[in-house]
């Protein structure tokens, strides 16, 4: 992944977890599919195939970028299981539509985390749109209107997007999804 994109992701994630008094550290795990085996890469750039590192210090956000599709599901579970409730300050899992349902279901089953699902809008730098709020349609109409091309093609694209929002098919407009979770007590 491009370095600038990683930085933007980290930065945006920090925004979600900002507090007045705490300093937080983001520990990123990238899951790749290499010949049907999942490779885990941490944000220090060292490739690792095991998850034995002791990264779950206090006030750590664990961010998992799953680019291994369904194969990554097991590793996501493993990373989350390895993190304890108390020191885990927050969790963010980037995934595709295919595994979104199963990962959400798994996080929900933990009972110790409250979570929200966001869609990553591909057309405006890096924007995360909440998908589980009551105001979703209005928000999507606004966000997908932020960029527009003056060309006929751009206008058609915009009209199609607005129609998809109206028809409740907007999940297809997102590039990827991110699940943001925090411990229930916080």
């Amino acid at each position: 992944m491009e370095q600038k994109n990683i930085q933007t992701q980290l930065n945006i994630l920090s925004t979600f977890f900002l507090t007045e008094e705490k300093t937080v550290k983001v520990q990123f795990f990238y899951l790749f599919n290499k010949n049907k085996n999942v490779t885990v890469q941490e944000d220090n750039g060292v490739l690792k195939n095991d998850l034995s590192s002791n990264v779950f210090e206090s006030k750590t956000i664990v961010a998992i970028d799953n680019q291994a599709g369904h194969l990554g599901y097991h590793q996501i579970k493993e990373i989350i299981h390895k993190s304890d409730v108390d020191p885990l300050f927050g969790l963010a899992v980037f995934c595709n539509k295919e595994e979104l349902k199963s990962v959400s279901k798994f996080i929900k089953s933990l009972n110790r985390l409250t979570f929200s699902v966001f869609g990553i809008n591909p057309d405006y730098f890096f924007s995360l749109v909440p998908l589980d709020g009551q105001n979703r349609r209005n928000i999507e109409k606004y966000i997908f209107n932020l960029t527009s091309e003056a060309s006929l093609k751009g206008k058609i694209k915009k009209t199609i997007k607005q129609a998809m929002i109206y028809l409740g098919l907007s999940n297809r407009l997102y590039e990827r999804f991110v699940i943001i979770a925090v411990p229930e007590k916080k």
Binding site: Q7, F16, F125, F126, S127, G133, Q134, I143
Partner: peptide, 19 residues
Amino acid sequence: NFDCVVLSSCLEDYGNNLV
């Protein structure tokens, strides 16, 4: 109820994050 959309104004490090 209220919702927060988080976005970056650009990809440069002198850009801002917006909520």
